[in-house]
Write a protein that binds this DNA or RNA. Structure first.
Length: 463
RNA sequence: UCCCCUGUAGCUCAGUCGGUAGAGCGGAUGGCUGUUAACCAUUAGGUCGUUGGUUCGAGUCCAGCCGGGGGAGCCA
């Protein structure tokens, strides 16, 4: 704990003093009289090369224990390295193997592994270059998310993870219960009495903190949430998880245009943070995972996001001459292929689609004067498609009440949501952004299951 | 939930027309005057996902089941 991290050691100038470092062996190369091995401690992508004179102070038996995966403590002197892959190296005087790693069955070898295989050994995959880099980027961006909002006067609000409101409608929900289902089934009961459940009514894991965030935005003006979110949808794709982290700002006195400005500034801030704070890791992603990703992100940072209404987007798609599997039709939600075509071929960069038909969007979106569309917006980016979805919220009490009635929703379930409009209502807006999708976009990792430490997906809750 | 692909050594894969199994990497052993995806030599390692079927004979053909991957829908 008190020994210097490798990241720090690598930045030091050689001197004669003895230092002690800890790390896991990544690779070892032996020559007749000399042995090289590399240590990694997760503090950075780079390894520290350790040089050991054979027949010196370290016994041969100990050298043989320096196998891939072993945890060791090394004391020695930092020196300039004649090799070309590192500027300094540690000339070992003593080594202590703290944890052996039998090489004949250690799953991680000094070679490339498929991500599919690594998912099966999620307890060991953070020891690889890729997952170390993903972890460091994820960490830096988590911090950057908070920093962005804190620097802009937002308050961090803890919205509930368990919700007794069945009113969210944003997807399938996981039920939270203490009812003994086995016993209930055994009695042959046809109906479950939720009044006897823990909360006295059905309860679920949250699918969004938005409605709760609106409460605080209507008091504190600028708020955000950043927490776990749960969707029980049976989705099996490279961009869905059952448990993921969502960022949801909510801002009073903010219309749709202001909301888009916020989303754009936010994304650019985060992308910049990745490039400036995780330079070595980003170079790794550029080299090994997604060629050109650094230039891609730089271009996004420097480009003003295009804006297009849904109606214009449909016209643009229809007139493109492109054959789509699903014909672009006004009144129908944009398909993934439409979104990707817009951002990758029409705009060739980030694009914000606004003013969707009200029937394809949620009840709370503010209605436009045309009576047909609502002030919703999706931010689309090349490679990924939709990365942010948001809207200006309906702040007019009677319009919102009518919409709830029109959709046949239970008005009583929204009593507090409606009271926000009854007392001191204010125009406000917000958006939601899946943190893992952001990490995917920034790193170029193809499967969302590889940008969260312990992915949960249908049929998959190991580790 | 639907569609497509896939399952062979620890890992990544090859395996032709159906005739009892191969490579590279990794491991072990030895060699090598500073290596860095080290290199050179030797060597061990397999119930071909699983159950059944066709056949004289199945890794190979067929069906079911299980696992993995990709795409779609839903969505963030």
């Amino acid at each position: 704990m008190n020994t210097p991290r490798i990241k720090f050691v690598l930045s030091r100038k050689p001197d004669a003093s003895e230092i002690t470092v800890h790390g896991w062996v990544r690779t070892r190369r032996d020559a007749k009289n000399i042995c090289f091995f590399e240590l990694n401690d997760g503090s950075c992508l780079a390894n520290l090369q350790v040089v050991l004179d054979r027949g010196g102070s370290v016994a041969d038996d100990d050298v043989k224990r320096l196998q891939t995966g072993a945890r060791v403590e090394v004391s020695g002197v930092l020196a300039d390295s004649p090799g070309s892959n590192q500027s300094v190296e540690l000339h070992a005087q003593t080594i202590r193997v703290i944890g052996d790693s039998p090489a004949d069955d250690y799953p991680l070898q000094k070679k490339r592994h498929s991500f599919e295989f690594l998912r099966e050994i999620a307890h060991l995959r953070p020891r690889t270059n890729t997952f170390g880099a993903v972890s460091r980027v994820r960490n830096a961006l988590s911090y950057a998310v908070h920093r962005f909002f804190q620097e802009n006067g937002f308050l961090y609000i803890a919205t509930p993870i368990i919700t007794a409101s069945d009113a969210e409608g944003a997807g399938e929900m996981f039920r939270v219960t203490t009812l003994p289902y086995e016993k209930i089934i055994a009695t042959g009961a046809k109906v479950i009495d939720y009044s006897r459940d823990f909360f006295g009514k059905p309860a679920y894991l949250t699918v969004s903190g938005q409605l709760n965030a609106e409460i605080y935005a209507c008091a504190l003006e600028r708020v955000y949430t950043f927490g776990p979110t749960f969707r029980a949808e049976n989705s099996n794709t490279t961009r869905h998880l059952s448990e993921f982290w969502m960022i949801e700002p909510e801002v009073a006195f903010c219309d749709l245009s202001c909301n888009i400005d916020l989303a754009e500034a936010f994304l650019k801030y985060i992308l910049s943070a990745a490039l400036t704070e995780c330079t070595a890791d980003m170079e790794f992603f550029d080299l090994r995972i997604q060629k050109g990703i650094i230039d891609d992100l730089r271009a996004v940072i420097e480009t003003k996001f295009a804006r297009i209404t849904y109606t214009d987007a449909i016209a643009e798609l229809g007139g493109s001459g492109r054959e789509f599997e699903y014909k672009p039709t006004w009144g129908v939600e944009l398909q993934t292929e439409h979104e990707k075509f817009l951002t990758e071929h029409v705009v060739k960069g980030p694009v914000v689609v606004t003013d969707y038909p009200k029937d394809v969007k949620a009840f709370y979106m503010k209605q436009n004067d045309d009576g047909k569309t609502v002030r919703g917006m999706d931010v689309l980016v090349p490679r990924l498609g939709e990365i942010i979805g948001g809207s200006q919220r309906e702040e007019n009490l009677s319009v919102l009440e009518n919409r709830i009635a029109e959709l046949g929703l239970d008005r009583d379930a929204y009593w507090w949501y409606l009271e926000l409009r009854k007392y001191g209502t204010v125009p406000h807006s917000g958006f939601g952004l899946g943190f893992e999708r952001l990490i995917q976009y920034v790193t170029g990792m193809q499967n969302i299951r590889d940008v969260i430490p312990f992915p949960r997906a249908p049929g998959a809750a190991d580790f």
